[in-house]
């Protein structure tokens, strides 16, 4: 285990730079080991950032590589993207994923907003547990329990419906958290004022609450959208054989063989989720933290 030596409490420019080696010493009183520790911290952090980005960069890079092998750079090409556009299975999977994401995130936004409002305003005892546990537990457990439920209890043929229900189930909690944190940041007195002026709960909701939580709803919808379009584990259990989503298609491709087409579809999917997440963060800055 590596533990980095700490920097001094306050940044002191121009301290004794000792070439980046960790200043492990019983330094004398009032010593200023400024530069060394800071440099070390920066170097370690840059290393971790590189660790985070390098693998994805390789995927993007090789999606433009003019070689079937993902081993060395041969030359620039867009033919893998071209092939994607003519891959019927892939296009069908993308269409399925988009449809499922649109429908499930709409339903999840509606139910999640209700849950968020309820949790903030009425403090129900059971609802937070119901909404947040599916988020906190290993995904495989939700997938397996829904599979059992759909097949043994409802006797439902697995497909679009089962995937939609599963996606709504794990998205509600995310939307609820985003909506609740938006409401928590607001002054309760405006709702009281509306009530005192004789507004019915519905009028208070439509004229005051709804406009105020609109950004949170947008962020929640977008977040639920990315969760749905990205989900692999739970979908894997409840999809059955008929309906293939984009992650399922990628999974079966990786299992068979690593082709540059996977790089291309991965790059496109990354681009999509990235832009949606950044858009969501614009609506509600805390959204990203809610996801993590």
């Amino acid at each position: 285990m590596r533990v980095e030596p700490p920097p001094p409490p306050t940044p002191r420019p121009g301290g004794g730079g000792d070439g980046g080696s960790p200043p492990i010493s019983g330094s004398t009183r009032l010593a200023r080991p400024g530069g060394g520790a800071r440099l070390w911290l920066w170097a370690a952090s840059l290393g971790v950032y590189a660790f985070l980005y390098l693998p994805l960069a390789v995927v993007v890079l090789f999606s433009f590589n003019d070689s079937v092998l993902n081993a060395e750079w041969v030359g620039f090409t867009t033919r893998w993207y071209d092939r994607l556009l003519h891959d019927g299975d892939m296009l069908q999977a993308a269409a399925n994923s988009l449809l499922i994401a649109m429908v499930s995130s709409s339903v999840a936004t509606l139910l999640g907003a209700m849950a968020g409002i309820a949790m903030q305003r009425y403090r129900p005892r059971l609802l937070p547990f119901l909404a947040l546990t599916p988020v906190a537990m290993p995904e495989i457990l939700l997938g397996v329990s829904l599979l059992l439920f759909f097949r043994q209890v409802l006797d439902l043929t697995l497909g679009l419906t089962s995937i939609l229900i599963a996606h709504v189930t794990f998205s509600i909690g995310f939307v609820a958290v985003i909506v609740r944190s938006r409401l928590a940041g607001m002054d309760e007195s405006i709702f009281e004022a509306a009530r005192d002026l004789g507004a019915t709960p519905w009028a208070t909701f439509r004229r005051i609450t709804l406009p105020l939580i609109l950004p949170a709803l947008a962020a929640g919808f977008l977040m639920a959208f990315t969760l749905s379009i990205d989900d692999f584990v739970i979908t894997f259990f409840v999809a059955g054989v008929g309906v293939v989503t984009l992650p399922l298609q990628i999974y079966s491709m990786i299992k068979v063989a690593v082709t540059p087409e996977v790089n291309a579809v991965s790059t496109l999917l990354m681009l999509l989720t990235l832009s949606v997440v950044i858009l969501a963060a614009r609506f509600a800055p805390d959204t990203l933290k809610a996801k993590a």
């Binding site: 994805l56 390789v58 995927v59 993902n70 992650p247 990628i250 790089n263 999917l269 990354m270």
Partner: peptide
């Protein structure tokens, strides 16, 4: 924010 499978796939590469 990117898909789990893509992040795993990157390590295959």
């Amino acid at each position: 924010a990117s898909n789990l499978l893509i992040r795993v796939y990157a390590w295959i590469l």
